[in-house]
Amino acid sequence: MNIAYGIVAGLLALFYFYAGTLKVIRSRDQLRPMMAWVDRVPLPAVRALGAVEILGAAGLILPPLTGIAPSLAQAAAIGFVLLQTGAIAVHLTGQDRRIALNAGLTVTAAVTIWLAARL
């Protein structure tokens, strides 16, 4: 079970670390081609969202790896399910109806919750 968690959580953390880093360091113009919603959200909120994604990625990996408060990994995965639920709502209320990636990330985070409960 630890190997399955490591693979799923590792891939999820890698995705969120990358996406979060982009949101923190890139300008709105640089983000727009891959994230059409950035024009509808204030830039400080985009930056904060990126920071949350980076911290959540660390929360998926570090607690089980160090053995310190491993339940935080499950909390991070729950946070990602909530984050993607909000992301789907943002996409559906705007003109961008592409939510396949968000749905996939939601399912992956839900599987991570299940696996984290069995660590």
Rank of each mutant, 00 (worst) to 15 (best):
N2E: 08
G6M: 10
I7V: 15
A9V: 10
L14K: 05
F15M: 08
F15G: 00
Y16Q: 13
T21S: 12
L22N: 13
K23V: 15
K23H: 15
I25Y: 13
R26Y: 10
S27E: 03
R32I: 11
P33Q: 00
A36E: 12
V38Y: 04
R40M: 14
P42M: 09
A48D: 14
A48K: 13
L49V: 10
L49I: 08
L49G: 14
E53P: 00
A57K: 11
A57I: 13
G59W: 10
L60N: 01
I61P: 06
P64H: 05
G67K: 09
I68H: 03
A69I: 01
P70V: 02
L72S: 10
Q74G: 03
Q74M: 14
Q74W: 05
A76F: 12
A76C: 12
I78P: 00
G79T: 06
G79W: 06
L83A: 15
G86I: 01
A87T: 08
A89S: 11
V90N: 13
H91E: 03
T93V: 09
G94S: 13
I99D: 02
I99C: 00
L101C: 07
N102P: 10
A103I: 14
T108C: 04
W114M: 09
L115K: 03
L115I: 02
L115G: 00
A117K: 03
R118L: 07
